[in-house]
Design a protein around this nucleic acid. Sequence first.
DNA 1: TTGCATGCAAATTTTTTGCAGCCAG
DNA 2: CTGGCTGCAAAAAATTTGCATGCAA
Lengths: 139, 139
Amino acid sequence: MNQRDHKKILREKKLKATKSRLAVLQVLESQRQPLDIEAIKTHLTDTRPNNVTLYRMMEDLSRVGIVRQIDLRQGRAFFEMMPLEDHHHIVCASCNKIEDIHGCILVDEIERTIKKSKNFDSSIDHVFEIFALCKACKN
Amino acid sequence: MNQRDHKKILREKKLKATKSRLAVLQVLESQRQPLDIEAIKTHLTDTRPNNVTLYRMMEDLSRVGIVRQIDLRQGRAFFEMMPLEDHHHIVCASCNKIEDIHGCILVDEIERTIKKSKNFDSSIDHVFEIFALCKACKN
DNA sequence: TTGCATGCAAATTTTTTGCAGCCAG
DNA sequence: CTGGCTGCAAAAAATTTGCATGCAA
């Protein structure tokens, strides 16, 4: 994904392709793991949007499905690019190490679930995180 | 689950069976849906622990696995009794309505995932929430 | 040009910390 | 009795709001 792609994606969602947004998307893309607001700022070199802007940005990007919000039980929100191929995380409850879960088969499960639901008939997004103690922290 | 059971559960986890804790467990048990700190207080009739106490309580109860923490993307933590038979939720991204997902088959998926992991070999807990727009909010 | 985006200041909300007093075991 | 639990005050951290200015389309 290069900058041109991100511009296109933003435009399709009726969001302006501002420098800040493109920079943030670049960071999320390259880091390949959930980042909180501070971490996003850390990785931004030139353009350094205000925290308020970042919060509003992440809200907008989440709403239109360009990024997704992740809860790692650390008292604040984390974000990552909405994955093309779905994946999730195992999080160490002690040192917060994150390992990706690939090849997840939840799509079918979600389909089945929605079909049985009485209030819902389609899903926007989902989260699936496993919390555990990593081998290192067990000692 | 009556009060005697809760006492036993707390003792087994080396936590004292105080009035506050028993009252909170009673609330979580009877409400059968994730509650935040304010909601827990609302449902407490006589004993009304301080917010600080509630935060510390939920941390302890989560740590030992009596309750589990849920993220509903509402900017604060929700809690529910750790379910005997695993279940999860579909949450409306607009009105926050919650519907339970029963008969979830994630246990096997988690087993498989942990087996493939290099940093982890067992799990404490997991979350699986689907976010969607409910039929009412789609209009 | 025009309205969405951003920055700044300030407020609000959520969660944590320190310390003194309390009560379950 | 005694160490874990709780309350109160206060601080810290995360997130939101209002308004003036800026910039993408």
